[in-house]
Design a protein around this nucleic acid. Structure first.
Lengths: 135, 135
DNA sequence: CTATTTGCAAACCCTTTGCAAAAAT
DNA sequence: ATTTTTGCAAAGGGTTTGCAAATAG
């Protein structure tokens, strides 16, 4: 289990209960939509506002702790991004599956960096498939 | 120059002047936003409606001829996708640079397909960089 | 002639913003 | 004590929709 207070402190962010809840909820669900997150967080914080969740997600995004994934269904999904990985997105239902990065991938990233001539902050691979286990 | 009418016919889409204009505009600009497209198209079609442009982009997206790219600035950008390639997205200004796919990439896609156990419809690589030539 | 597409305006939905009160450090 | 964060409600912005008229095949 992650020490959320420590994590936030290291980013110079105040460790409010709401913010900790957002982090917890992100850790507890895989690629949640905002509604899924909101619902989850409200179990702990019935009075939290949707705006607060959005604000915190943006703050965490700025710190690079969270990434937004735009799905083919138009719904944004959120992901904690401690470890780089590949997103396999279903074109049909918007479901997302993670795939760990392997050595081949790291090498590939280096290739791209060389070509671009600039260091890459984050590399995101979206593999779109026509259907998934849930559709 | 592409034969747009032929292209559309092969997709069972009616070749309206508006639709052809959308294709032309997509070919003429790199990764335009909807506004850039709209402005361009209106040079030829002053009376075209924004809704028509959106509808056509969605239709072309369904055919796989166009991809949407979600930029860090929140503005969606559009791209003709005849040939797979990599998008290098600037986290700062949302500018996008193309990078051609090479053999290493194709091999990488095959690796992913094998792991996912499903054939990949489209693979999109977003490499995020901190700044670009224009910022 | 039939099916699709257009254009308009309104509706929609998700996300952001402004501001005063509350809370964290 | 200072700065950040919260919550509310309202505003914002981009995208979609419904429908009648126009157009493509």
């Amino acid at each position: 289990m992650t020490d959320y207070i420590q994590l936030l402190k290291s980013c110079n962010l105040k460790a409010t209960p709401q913010r900790i809840s957002v982090l917890k909820a992100l850790d507890g669900q895989t690629h949640p939509t905002i509604d899924e997150l909101f619902e989850q967080i409200r179990l702990e914080h019935p009075a939290i506002s949707l705006a607060t969740v959005y604000k915190n997600l943006n703050t965490l995004k700025d710190e690079g702790l969270v990434v937004e994934i735009n799905t083919p269904t138009g719904k944004m999904r959120y992901d904690v991004f401690y470890m780089p990985h590949i997103h396999v997105v279903c074109a049909n239902c918007g479901n997302i599956e993670d795939m760990p990065c392997d050595i081949a991938f790291d090498k590939y990233q280096k290739d791209i960096e060389e070509k671009v001539g600039r260091s890459i902050k984050r590399i995101e691979v979206l593999a779109t498939v026509d259907s998934c286990s849930c559709c």
